[in-house]
Write a protein that binds this DNA or RNA. Structure first.
Length: 867
RNA sequence: GGAGUCAUAGCUCAGCGGGAGAGCACCUGCUUCACAGGCAGGGGGUCGGGGGUUCGAAUCCCUCUGACUCCACCA
């Protein structure tokens, strides 16, 4: 006889399972006889450990792929990692700095050697964590964004877009990260509201005729000013246009010009123009052919244009020059304001708009194509709007980064000549661009570059386009959108059929989990304490698609409790199966008791509901069906009922019951395997089974022969009677196991036979002294009577019965029934309802009304007797 | 300034066109031979306010209020 330990021990259960699966080769894809189903992992950065967000993301992917594998697909879950340019380089820099080493002292080559070592180390950590999560990824297909193959894809894409005129190099105002000393794209900048000020300055006119006053939030940029501008229709300023004014505190003169960009009603109506440090001013500068001097260095310190402030940090300079100009009477007013300021997503520093020569992707043709041709189905659908909305208004994408860790831009320069290609052109003197590409440039190709593109590989043909992408809404712009337009451009197809979007993980107080708040939760800590199955179940059942997930330890505990429940129903089953084998499992649908038919009918319904919700990616709903089936139906009722049959002397009865226990439990395990792979594997191994692993066992079938509405209805009658009796026992404080006399007044012949055939069940649950069936029962005040449909339960409780209480209860019941009757009649009297509502609905109401009327009459009669 | 989300039981959330649900918390009984992290019973909600569509609305539409998120170069 097999026996499981009394308590579910997640440590023991999870130990060795992953190795077992790996050894079995179950994660491998490639069975050509099957239809492919592909998910590529969103590649984690090789910067650190996986957090709860990854655990969520990866569990969702793994659930989908495990189910599809069981359903007979050639399931490919392709793993990989992202080099994460800025993030990784920043971390390596930091580590080097702590050792007193600076990147530039090392040189590019040496630095890259260190970076690759770093990658190797972190890739190892990440694989360890995938293992802990239990994700069934095919390691034979693992990729890294800086792999040779992917590098080839990146280069190919760059060259193609360049030749098509969709990649260009130009001087633009870009977002400059003064700490990382690199350009950023627009979406790598987070706008945050901060306290700032409007500083008013006097620009004195050259001819001594007075001054012009401007307001600015960034005084330090005045050293890059090359003009003042006013609106052409602004009467206040006509006389000044054409004159020249001094940049305050300097002897540099700048012209006063007209430009209709100016908003006359804002500020003073006069604006300083700093073409090298502001995107709008840059355009003004171009229109008026103004000089565009930078007044800052790459690290955010001021340059020689700031004369005495040279070398000072931009914010220190702001403070200093404001103070000096105040003293000189040239700063007239300071207004405190709150305004939005761009911060680098990576380093957090205030981004400096800066004129700089960079590479850009021309977005308009690509986004137009994406909007028109994308066939990706977002789940939930509303995220398609998010995607389209962004595609609609996106700016050209700055793709060059002043870093070393990344794909080096395939461009070579010699004087003014530029060559874009795989290799440098023939001849001496060509120098390759020092910069690398934005990390997202390579991530955008991930769904096809990982499968071998640009070569027309077997994998690409077989697994591309991929089936489902799972990711958070926070990277729709960064990644999803770019994958879509690049895929359409280069493969002519959308990169995936479905895109399942999930939200963010928040702490118990609803705050975003972040390093700075220190409120992050390490999935490995949860694994240690509750087990990964618990964490997975928690993560995938506590929010709807696209919604955020609040991390609450109480819910993790309740997930553990559910698994412990499953453990115990398995324990019960195994204790009773004895040496029962898979060959002994036999279900003859012509030879079943009501409870057997009922549990199988419920199983049938549960499989259908679960499948329906799995297909819609509604995992919370899918789990809800299995949860209530296994706990409320199987554990609370069938297991109890089976105890009767298992004690029978009749061998066939015992065998039938064991078969059903084993069969139903096995299906429960399979339905839950995608949620909790470890414990379901453990239990599967103990139960009679065929395949070597639950992972490769077939997904449960909803067998139509099991569908049985009559059984569900009949069993519900039994349950109702039992519940009613339990209820009375509680209400009258009758000890649960104290034997009581039960009289059932049944007139309906079908009800009569159902109850009589299942008398043992009634006895099992109600602890009767005797159960008596009657068609008439003489009035007696010392009894409690519960009136159900077709059945009246009479409990002669003698002294325990309180007539007044009983009258009150029955009157309450009467009121309830009257309410119901009124409702039914109201609906049925409404001609519109009868004519417009579906027939089955109308019939349903009629049936209910009949039943209520009958119950009402019986209750009223009983009440009359009492009075 | 645009776009979107949320408002349902004390808490956290499902449900999203046909009679209000779960988990946790709370109250009352239980050492019932799988489980006391369990079993049985119970209390608790005019489903944010107001309109509309519909035979029927928590569910669809409009509007208001409150919370949040993303996008956006007004100095």
């Amino acid at each position: 006889m097999k026996e499981l330990p009394k308590k579910y021990d997640h440590h023991k259960v999870e130990e060795g399972k992953y190795e077992f699966w790996l050894d079995g080769g179950y994660f491998k894809s490639g069975d050509k006889t099957k239809e492919p189903y592909t998910i590529v992992i969103p590649p984690p950065n090789v910067t650190g450990k996986l957090h709860l967000g990854h655990a969520w993301d990866n569990t969702l992917q793994d659930m989908i792929i495990r189910r599809k594998r069981m359903q007979g697909y050639d399931a490919l879950y392709l793993p990989g990692m992202d080099h994460a340019g800025i993030a990784t380089q920043a971390k390596i820099d930091e580590k080097l700095r702590s050792q007193g080493i600076f990147r530039h002292e090392l040189g590019r080559e040496k630095f890259l050697e260190i970076a690759w070592d770093w990658k190797k180390e972190y890739a190892g950590h990440i694989r360890e964590q995938w293992k802990a999560l239990g994700v069934s990824v095919d390691y034979d297909k693992e990729r890294f964004t800086l792999d040779e193959g992917l590098n080839k894809a990146v280069t190919e894409v760059f060259i193609h877009l360049y030749e098509k005129g969709l990649i260009y190099r130009g001087e633009r105002i870009i977002n400059w990260d003064v700490e990382a000393k690199t350009a950023l794209s627009n979406i790598e900048v987070d706008h945050k509201e901060v306290q700032g000020a409007f500083y008013y300055f006097k620009y004195e006119l050259e001819d001594g005729s007075g001054f012009l006053e401007i307001a600015t939030t960034r005084p330090e940029t005045m050293y890059g000013d090359t003009a003042l501008m006013v609106h052409p229709e602004d009467d206040r300023y006509h006389e000044y246009v054409g004159k020249r004014a001094y940049i305050p505190g300097t002897d540099r003169l700048i012209p006063v010009i007209y430009d209709d960009y100016v908003d006359m009603d804002f500020g003073t109506g006069c604006v300083k123009v700093t073409p090298a440090h502001d995107p709008n001013d840059f355009e003004v500068g171009q229109r008026h052919d103004l000089p565009m001097p930078l007044c800052m260095n790459e690290d955010g310190t001021m340059n020689h244009l700031a004369h005495k402030y040279e070398g000072m940090d931009r914010f220190a300079c702001r403070k200093a020059c404001v103070k000096d100009l105040q003293e000189a009477g040239l700063c007239t007013k300071i207004e405190q304001i709150t305004h939005n300021v761009g911060h680098s997503q990576r380093t957090g520093v205030v981004v400096e708009p800066r004129l700089s020569k960079q590479w850009f992707v021309k977005m308009e043709p690509l986004s137009k194509q994406a909007v028109e041709k994308s066939t990706v189905q977002f789940v939930p659908a509303r995220f398609e709007k998010t995607f389209l909305h962004w595609m609609d208004g996106t700016f050209d994408w700055c793709i060059s980064r002043q870093l070393w860790w990344g794909h080096r831009i395939p461009a070579w320069y010699k004087g003014d000549d530029v060559h874009v290609g795989y290799d440098a052109p023939e001849g001496d003197g060509w120098k390759q661009d020092e910069d690398v590409l934005d990390t997202w440039f390579s991530s955008a190709l991930w769904p096809f570059s990982t499968l071998g593109w640009p070569d027309d590989t077997d994998d690409l043909k077989r697994y591309y386009p991929t089936t489902t992408m799972v990711t958070g809404y926070d990277i729709i712009f960064f990644w999803v959108a770019r994958m879509i337009f690049q895929a359409l451009e280069f493969t002519g197809e959308s990169p995936f059929e479905y895109c399942l979007i999930h939200g963010l993980i928040r702490d118990a107080d609803g705050r975003k989990m972040s390093k700075s708040l220190g409120n992050g939760v390490d999935p490995m800590d949860i694994k240690e304490e509750y087990g990964m199955d618990t964490l997975r179940y928690f993560l995938t059942t506590n929010s709807a698609p696209g919604m955020d997930l609040r991390f609450e330890i109480e819910k993790v505990e309740s997930s553990w409790n559910f698994i412990n429940k499953l453990w115990n129903i398995s324990r019960f089953t195994l204790m009773n199966l004895g040496d029962f084998t898979i060959d002994d499992v036999e279900i003859d649908t012509d030879d079943l008791t009501l409870s057997d038919r009922w549990i199988l009918a419920r199983l049938y319904e549960t499989i259908n509901e679960t499948d329906y919700n799995y297909e819609k990616f509604e995992f919370g709903e899918a789990a809800k069906s299995v949860h209530s089936f296994s706990w409320d139906d199987f554990a609370s009722w069938y297991v109890e009922v089976s105890k009767i049959a298992l004690q029978s002397d009749d061998e066939a009865t015992v065998k039938r019951t064991k078969s059903i226990l084993a069969y139903v439990l096995l299906d429960i395990m399979k339905l839950l395997h995608p949620f909790m792979p470890f414990v379901t594997e453990e239990i599967y191994q103990q139960l009679p089974h065929i395949e070597d692993s639950i992972m490769i066992s077939p997904w449960p079938d909803a067998i139509e022969e099991f569908e049985d509405a009559q059984a569900i209805q009949d069993f519900a009658r039994i349950q109702d009677i039992i519940k009613a009796i339990r209820n009375v026992r509680a209400e009258y404080n009758v000890a649960p196991a104290k034997p009581i006399h039960i009289v059932l007044k049944v007139t309906d012949p079908h009800a009569q036979s159902v109850l009589q055939e299942n008398l043992a069940i009634l006895e099992r649950f109600t602890y009767p002294e005797a159960i008596e069936f009657v068609t008439e029962y003489s009035s007696d005040n010392e009894l409690v009577s519960i009136i159900l449909k077709d059945v009246e339960i009479i409990l002669p409780l003698g002294d325990l019965v309180d007539i007044a209480q009983e009258i009150a209860r029955l009157e309450g019941e009467l009121r309830r029934l009257e309410g119901e009757i009124k409702r039914c009649e109201g609906m049925l009297k409404n001609p519109n309802f009868v004519s417009k509502a579906p027939d089955f609905k109308v019939q349903q109401e009629r049936d209910k009304l009949a039943a209520y009327n009958e119950q009402h009459a019986t209750t009223k009669a009983r009440l009359a007797e009492l009075k």
